[in-house]
Nucleic acid binder design. Structure first.
Lengths: 139, 139
DNA sequence: TTTGTTTTGTTATGTTATCACATCCGCACA
DNA sequence: TGTGCGGATGTGATAACATAACAAAACAAA
């Protein structure tokens, strides 16, 4: 799935769900999609800055919050970074495989990890699943 | 497993592996164990500070690095916090269930998540697996 | 005791994230 | 047309998290 398709898909998804993909938010999404690897909030900020002098940290963090809630972007917890979700709206339930050499992230949907050993009565609302290692090309 | 047992166990583990559990590191481990929930680095710092005025951020981060490497402590990525590992040396391979109400963490060993959908050729060296929700008591 | 290594102290700074309040903009409705 | 409302963005400040770089001390091996 290429950059343009992902963006179109995001538009459609937002239209359908009533989420407001404003120009600023779209711009941030675009930057995340283009990065094609986990990108830092302050890197996004400096890129936005080139076109919009008024961008400040809250600008980018707010946009990212929106995008994460809309299921368009994932936060990579162990990297304090963000990646585009290749499938709009599947933002929750993702399992990430992160190559520590080339930094590329492969997202696997529907790979809900076995919760066989889940503590009794525990009700999971959100899972962070990130596997780090080397991808095929980088070994 | 109670606090004292965990500390004894940690001592034994370090003796066996040749890791040097110095007074400072032991003190930090003690604080993490006592907390019985994820603790922040700066909270540890302010607790150490009461006895050791010279404690600075690197003091606690270095001790934590050591403890994590020794498999005595886990970093909870999505919280920027740290928890004691109830089983010395099993520090890698852990799956954490974190109650967002009472903040308590239950660690499950040996619950390696299915990697059935792992990208071909990907070699995992480290996994971050954190489930957030409500524990039985807090529902 | 000398030497090399590890640990700890110390200052400074880098990086990540949020708060609080002001302003703007689109929209519904009088 | 204007007025009020709510969501989005602008703005300045600061909080929270983490590391770099170098100095001093502790310690163990030779």
């Amino acid at each position: 799935m290429n950059e343009q398709d992902i963006l179109k898909d995001a538009e459609r998804h937002c239209t359908k769900t009533g989420a407001r993909l404003t120009p600023l938010r779209r711009r941030v999404l675009e930057l995340v999609v283009r990065a094609d690897a986990p990108v830092k909030a302050y890197d996004l900020l400096s890129q936005i800055d080139r076109s919009n002098t008024s961008a400040k940290p809250p600008t980018v963090y707010r946009a990212l919050d929106f995008l994460i809630n809309a299921g368009l972007v994932h936060r990579v917890e162990a990297l304090n970074a963000f990646v585009a979700c290749p499938q709009a709206g599947h933002g929750h339930a993702a399992v990430l495989y992160i190559c520590e050499v080339c930094t590329k992230v492969t997202e696997v949907q529907g790979a809900r990890p076995g919760q066989e050993h889940k503590p009794e009565g525990f009700c999971v609302t959100r899972s962070v699943i990130e596997h780090y290692g080397q991808c095929m090309n980088c070994r």
